[in-house]
């Protein structure tokens, strides 16, 4: 237990010093702000930059509050995931490369604690960023478009948090397995590309971790099919545990690859 605390503190300090604890949340808050604002001011923005001929009228789509929050999540699903992967792709692999790993691996640490300390810190930063961003978006949506019920919003954000933890675990497990570049590539493949495939072909199945974000948005307008929803959550949690075991095993196996 003490070992985990020490490793956790080390990880925390590292992420404070490289400012990840500051800029990752700021990026998510930025998109949480800009999405409701651009939707709200779309007519003015088109007026100012659009160069429309006189008298053009656009039938402006009327956004419902739920749609605006969904749009924010849509931004997170692409740009947000990209930021998370790129920010944390080197969490374990970079330590092997720059020699920090050597300082850690010569001590009799348990690799479970080693992996867990990283998972906790990265997971905390990611969840904090996403929640701050979504809360900002919720606040602004309430201000500009109308109310979204608190219970709906928290069901949505809570469900989405499971997906975020899944993403974080993928990134860390890949970082434990491969060098930084490979970890980034494979994580992006698993997170972004599989998601596109899942949305294209996914009508054939209803239970998958990549459907969690869709189920999350359904909380805003109603509620998802509870059987599919809970099975997806269960499968995702199992996948998270499996990826963590894989990550622990890989960080142990790759420990000898560290540069001295």
């Amino acid at each position: 237990m003490r070992e985990l605390v020490v490793l956790f503190q080390k990880e925390w300090r590292e992420n404070t010093r490289n400012f990840k604890i500051l800029w990752v949340p700021l990026v998510f808050i930025f998109f949480g702000l800009s999405e409701p604002l651009t939707s709200y001011y779309l007519p003015q923005i088109l007026d100012a930059v659009g160069n429309m001929p006189e008298g053009t009228t656009f039938p402006m789509p009327e956004f419902t509050p739920a749609q605006v929050i969904m749009a924010t999540m849509g931004q997170y699903q692409f740009i947000g995931m990209l930021v998370l992967v790129l920010a944390f792709m080197g969490t374990i692999s970079r330590e092997r490369k720059n020699g920090t790993g050597t300082l850690i691996y010569v001590r009799p640490i348990s690799y479970l604690n080693y992996f867990l300390s990283k998972w906790k810190v990265v997971g905390m930063i990611a969840l904090m960023s996403v929640w701050l961003g979504l809360l900002t978006s919720w606040y602004y949506t309430g201000l500009l478009f109308g109310k979204v019920e608190a219970s709906d919003f928290f069901a949505f954000a809570g469900t989405y948090s499971v997906w975020i933890l899944f993403v974080v675990t993928i990134v860390l497990a890949m970082s434990a397995w491969l060098p930084t570049g490979g970890a980034a590539g494979l994580s992006l493949l698993l997170i972004l590309i599989v998601q596109i495939v899942d949305s294209l072909l996914g009508t054939y199945w209803t239970i998958s971790p990549w459907k969690i974000s869709t189920y999350a948005t359904q909380w805003l307008t109603g509620s998802p099919d509870s059987g599919d929803f809970w099975w997806s959550i269960a499968i995702t949690i199992l996948a998270i545990i499996a990826l963590m075991i894989f990550g622990v095993w890989m960080s142990k196996r790759n420990a000898s690859k560290t540069k001295v």
Binding site: I29, F30, L33, L37, A48, Y140, L143
Partner: peptide, 19 residues
């Protein structure tokens, strides 16, 4: 067209960029 904007609402975006 930009006159109609209320700067109090938009200011946080610029503050985040500045930080």
């Amino acid at each position: 067209a930009l006159q109609g904007l209320s700067w109090g609402i938009i200011a946080p975006i610029f503050i985040i960029q500045l930080i």
